[in-house]
Amino acid sequence: MLAIKEVFHADYVTLQLSGEIDASNSVLLDEAIKQALNGNHERILIDATALTYISSAGLGVFMSYLEVFEEKNIHFALYGLTPTVFQVFQILGLDQLLTITGSAEEALQTS
């Protein structure tokens, strides 16, 4: 079960994820990111505080946007990952390519 809530701020959007991302619902994450991109936001933040699990399908969604973020010069950052979820990013090596911070403030400062 995955729930995604969009929170709009003056100059950025936060996608709050809660629950688990797996092959059955990763398309929801994909759509939410696509929508945020269509909204022409320069900064997109992912609040992963309530994310309890991510499968390879979920990681694949983040991975598939790496070039788009770079091309469009979009600041994309994740924050609040639990140690278990962070470890999944780390083992795959995605932590080297994505901005991952502890808090929203830190995620905004990295832009």
Binding site: G93, Q96, L97
Partner: peptide, 17 residues
């Protein structure tokens, strides 16, 4: 050990990982 999954970076930029 450091490393990066195959197919994540699809150019020479992968090599340094």
């Amino acid at each position: 050990s450091e490393g990066l999954g195959l197919g994540i970076l699809r150019n020479d930029g992968y090599d340094r990982y």
